[in-house]
């Protein structure tokens, strides 16, 4: 038993290094995608203190809008622009209808409101686009679809899907872009000011409402990118909503307020989940992907309650 847990998985890893590499690559891609979802959460949490449960459904909704428009004969790139516009409209509506009246409410109320939004968007999305899964318009968007096999050692083989490479590249561009946006632009600085202190930001003339609409829009664009990448790997359907739950352990691992945390957390969870599932999963009957990430995050949190990069929580009476 102990041998099975502590020794055997490593023996397997050493025996088939090419398979291990393949697993690591899968973990890397999954991690990147988790990080993208977590990024959407972090953007909104940082700026408004709202734990946005609807991020998962925003991913689905954005992808569905894109695919749905294309099905109605809109060219792919125009559909992409229109989908971005729809996310902008959604961001504006959310800010105006949901967030503004709920300002200064306790965080649990805001969390509930976003779950209410999830219900609404699920109903609305299914009402407009129908409930059946659709396939992502990968080729029409000019994304690569093939795969490349690498020879490793004498008999090893590593297969990389091009779409996964594209996902990784796009995620990195996105994170870099957000980094520049936050650090170099006027709006980005205003965003960070709001994240630091709402009242101080207000007092120097930053419009909170405008900032919130912008972060929701940014989160919407991140959601669209995630939706395209994730949709290309499987179908676009409401089942994708559950990936939001995959991103939550990433969040607590990285800290709710940290963009680097979201990325590092995503990678840790991605690697951990795939390796755990492949090498340790069979010991308990498989399917442990659904909770392993949570257990990793939970154990980590016991030692560092604010996550890896979260702001230190100082409590006073």
């Amino acid at each position: 038993m102990l041998y099975d847990i502590f020794v055997d998985p490593f023996v397997q890893m050493a025996a088939q290094p090419d398979f291990l590499l393949q697993v690591l690559w899968e973990g890397f891609v999954a991690g990147i995608l988790y990080a993208l979802i977590a990024l959407g959460f972090v953007l909104i949490f940082k700026a408004s203190g709202v734990f946005n449960f609807a991020q998962g459904i925003m991913v689905v909704f954005a992808a569905l809008t894109l695919v749905g428009l294309h099905e109605h004969g809109v060219p792919a790139y125009l559909a992409l622009i229109l989908a971005i516009a729809v996310m902008g409209l959604l961001a504006y509506t959310v800010e105006r209808v949901v967030m503004r009246p709920l300002v200064n409410q306790p965080e649990i109320i805001l969390l509930m409101a976003t779950i209410g939004m999830t219900y609404f968007l699920v109903g609305f999305g299914e009402f407009v686009f129908g409930g059946e899964p659709k396939s992502m318009i990968t080729e029409e968007l000019g994304l690569p679809t093939g795969s490349t096999a690498f020879q490793i050692g004498e008999r090893g083989l590593l297969i990389l899907q091009h779409i996964d490479i594209a996902a990784a590249v796009i995620a990195i561009i996105m994170v870099a872009g957000l980094g520049i946006f936050f650090n170099k632009t006027r709006i980005g600085r205003a965003l960070r000011a709001v994240a630091d202190d709402h009242q101080a930001a207000l007092s120097v003339g930053i419009s909170l409402n405008q900032i919130w609409a912008i972060v929701w829009f940014a989160a919407g664009i991140v959601a669209l990118a995630t939706g395209i990448m994730w949709g290309a790997r499987s179908d676009v359907s409401f089942a994708l909503e559950i990936i939001a739950f995959k991103a939550l352990p990433v969040l607590i691992l990285g800290g709710f307020t940290s963009i680097p945390g979201a990325i590092v957390g995503g990678l840790v969870i991605g690697f951990g989940e795939k390796i755990g599932e492949i090498y340790w999963g069979p010991l308990v009957g498989g399917g442990i992907e659904s909770w392993l990430a949570y257990i990793i995050a939970l154990i980590f949190l016991l030692f560092r309650p604010q996550g890896m990069f979260g702001e230190r929580i100082i409590e006073r009476v």
């Binding site: 009246p101 409101a113 779950i115 209410g116 009402f127």
Partner: peptide, 20 residues
Amino acid sequence: QHLTSMIVGALIIFFLITEP
């Protein structure tokens, strides 16, 4: 079913806004 989901979601938000 879809409409119900939408209405429930909207009502939840409405209630949270009017009486948290």
